[in-house]
Write a protein that binds this DNA or RNA. Structure first.
Lengths: 215, 215
DNA sequence: ACCTGAACACCGTTCAAGT
DNA sequence: ACCTGAACACCGTTCAAGT
């Protein structure tokens, strides 16, 4: 025996190791040579299980998002939508490289499941059938799109040991902008300093939900 | 004389040529060797004007988005927001590589100007000062995030000569999903087939605006 | 100060040769 | 059928040498 299973080369094993590498060193760190080294094989061997780097990246992103669709089971439609959105946010936050890996709406299994689940909640909210796609799309696209944006921000700020310091610095920048050209941005500098990314993300979901309710 | 100006190597000229190359061959087509060839110089020369490839990409994206913030001047707050969102959509649609080039919220000049303009409209809508940042961020983040998503879809579908055929194919796929697991997606297959990307994008903006109005 | 372009240290992917 | 790893055709970036 000797755990032969976990040593065997397989698509799942490759994806698993790829996620590890991506979490550790980001998208740039994922090379077939390094993967091959970890898997004790040659780079060419990987091509028997994944088509190319792009497909591997997509598979890794899908794997990381699989559980998002089952969040908030048994809760009210509104809370379920918030729970799913939170799960998507958390998954992207924990694996920021997923953000870069644009998962176009429901083109991959994990996001298709999210889309379906959102569709169910929207319908339970009383949205007429003809308006389902518009509402479900707005919510799902917001989750992926804005989730990605947050990941990009997080990656850019990765060097900063102190997130608060980074926010304060940007806030000060805003406060010192030209008063004639940027009055509103100056006005928002304080709110920007004190905001929480996840709350802000969910506030946007709430606005869309309020818009759906107001129809 | 002999149009010495346009031959001189400069940051602006490099960005200009980069945009051309990106429009023609996408992000993968942008190499310093090719840029140097077009500009009749060596690849090393470019580093006297741009720090690296990433900075060049960011500068190109910013240049393409500069005019978005001035859209919808003189219109009602609601229409101005829609006009700005439409301009952002069109810019990303015309230069899909901008999508990949995640422009984190108001970190770059062009998006800062968009954010400011959105902030002004939101305030004109009667949103109290304390809620300005939440509303303006939701709108701006949606524009960038979902605009990116659309660009990714457009790039993925690039090979298709016929967008209608691609939509029909995906719609059929949805309609043939398992009825127990994907009832809502099946229900939305028809609406998905007939939807227009730009309209759907603006419908999302409308939902957020309705949510803001409903407070 | 700016340009040149060879050189460095890598890539993803392919493919003949092996098992 | 699957693996191996050298080889191919590239990259971004640096830097000594020029102007």
């Amino acid at each position: 025996m000797r755990q032969r299973r976990s040593d065997a080369l397989s698509r799942e094993r490759i994806v698993e190791v790829a996620i590890d590498v991506l979490d550790r060193d980001g998208e740039a760190g994922l090379t077939f040579r390094r993967l091959a080294l970890t898997l004790k094989t040659g780079p060419g061997a990987l091509y028997h299980h994944v088509a190319n780097r792009e497909e591997l990246l997509a598979a890794a992103a899908d794997a990381v998002l699989t559980t998002a669709s089952i969040a908030g089971a048994g809760e009210s439609p509104r809370d379920a939508v918030r729970a799913i959105a939170g799960a998507v946010f958390d998954a992207i936050d924990a694996h920021p490289w997923v953000g870069r890996q644009l998962v176009p709406a429901p083109a991959q299994p994990a996001m298709l499941a999210v889309f379906e689940r959102i569709g169910q909640q929207v319908r339970a909210l009383g949205v007429p059938d003809a308006a389902l796609f518009t509402s479900a799309s707005a919510l799902t696209n917001y989750m992926i799109g804005v989730g990605e944006l947050n990941a990009a921000n997080a990656l850019a700020a990765q060097g900063d040991t102190d997130r608060t310091a980074a926010l304060t610095q940007m806030s000060d920048q805003w406060a010192n902008l030209d008063a004639h050209a940027y009055p509103m941005t100056r006005l928002m500098a304080g709110q920007m300093r004190d905001h929480d990314d996840r709350e802000q993300f969910l506030d946007g979901i709430d606005l869309i939900l309020a818009g759906i309710a107001a129809r």
